[in-house]
Design a protein around this nucleic acid. Sequence first.
DNA 1: CTCCAGATGTTGTCACTGTCAACATAGGAC
DNA 2: GTCCTATGTTGACAGTGACAACATCTGGAG
Lengths: 210, 210
Amino acid sequence: MNKAAYHHGDLRTALLEAADTLLAEQGAAGLSLRAVAKRAGVSHTAPYRHFRDKAALLSALAAEGFRLLAEGLEAAAARHVDDPARQLKEAGRVYVTTALAHPQRARLMFGGNVALSDHDPVYQAAGERAFNGLQQIIHAGQAAGVFRDDPVRPLALSLWSAVHGLVMLLLAEQIGDVPAGDPARVATMISWVTEVTLSGVLHRDSPGNS
Amino acid sequence: MNKAAYHHGDLRTALLEAADTLLAEQGAAGLSLRAVAKRAGVSHTAPYRHFRDKAALLSALAAEGFRLLAEGLEAAAARHVDDPARQLKEAGRVYVTTALAHPQRARLMFGGNVALSDHDPVYQAAGERAFNGLQQIIHAGQAAGVFRDDPVRPLALSLWSAVHGLVMLLLAEQIGDVPAGDPARVATMISWVTEVTLSGVLHRDSPGNS
DNA sequence: CTCCAGATGTTGTCACTGTCAACATAGGAC
DNA sequence: GTCCTATGTTGACAGTGACAACATCTGGAG
C-alpha cells in the first residue's frame, strides 16, 4: 500500500478526486479524460477500468454533488424544525450557496449537458428526496397555519423554481452587473427571492386580484 | 449568384442555419465545426473566415436566441397593457414555452457552458432590455395599486428567477416524472409557478381573497 | 478596360481527444 | 504453487479545433 504498485489500490476514488479538481479549474468542457488519468498518475486508458466512458465519470461527479446538496438541505431543515418559514428560507440559502461554492460542478449537475450516462438512479433519488422534504415542510407549515392552504405541489414547485432559477442566473452571469462571486450581494438576492416568493407580489389588500 | 460560385455569397448565414439545425439535432456538445461546414457545403476551415472560433459561432446562435426571446417578451407585454398581473403571467408563459420550443438552444443560452466568446454585448443588451421591461411592468402595477409597494428589484428578480428556474428544471428533466416535452403538464406548471409567485406562500393576514 | 489588393474559400497539417484491442501484471482462491 | 480475473499499459485509429500557406474571386482605382 505504500510502494507505488502496479495496481493503484483505490484508483476509482483517486480519479474522481483528480476529476473534481480539474473540473473546478477548467469546467466540464475543458476536462479531458487523459488529463484526469495523468493527474492520477496512471496511463490514459486506466479510467476505462472504472468508468464506462467520460460521461460516466462526470455522472459520478454530478451524483456526488446531488448527494451533498440533499444532505445540506436536510441538515438545514433539521436546524429549525418548529419554524417552517425559517426552514424554507434556510433551505433556499443552502441550495444557492452550496451550488455557487462549486460553480463548475453546479453547471455539470444542472446544465443538462452531461447526458448523464445511464439515467443514474442517484439523480432521481436525490431529487425526489429533496422535493419530498420540501413538501413535508410545506405540509407542516400548513398544519401550523403559517402557510396558505393551497395544494402542496404548486407551492413546492414554485419555491424550488425560484431558488433554482436564482442559482442558474448567477451561474450564467446573467444578472446585470452582479457576478456570482460576490457573497454579500448574492446573500441579499437570496433573501429577496425567498422572502418575495413566500410573501407574494400582489398587493395584500387589493380587492380585485384573483 | 445563381451558379455554385467559389464564393458562397452569404456563407455566414448559411453556417448559422446549418449550425442551428445540427444544434437542435445533437446539442452543443455533439456539434462539430467540421460538420457545420460540411452541411453548408464548404471546406472544414471556411467557418474561420466568419467566426473566430467555435465558441464565436455558438455565441452568435445564442445571441439570436436572446433576441427572439426578448422580442417575444415585449410582444407578450404589449398584448395586455392595462393589466399588469396578466402581463407578468403572459411574459412568464412566453419565457418558458419559447425556451422549451428549442431545448438545445436554451441549454446553450442558459447553461453557462459556452464561454460566450467576447462577452457579446448582445447578451447584456437583451438581458437588460428584458429585465427593464419587467421592472416597468411592476412599476405600473404598483402605480395601479395592484402590486405591493415593495422595492422593484427584489420583486422583478423573484419573478425572473421563478420562471427561469422552471425552465432549467424542465430542461434538465429534473422534475420527477415530468418530461419537458409534455405541453399540457408544462402549461400547468407555468400557471402554478406564476400564480404562486404572484400571490405568495405565506398565509394572508386578511383572509377572504383567494 | 485593366489590374491588383483584400476578402473569401481550400488544402495540408498539427496536437489533442475519446475509445478500442491486445498485452502485461498482480493478488487472491483453490 | 497455480491459475483466474481484476486492474493497468501500450499502441493504434478516427474525429476535432485550429493554424499556415495557398488559390480564387470581386470590387474599385486608375
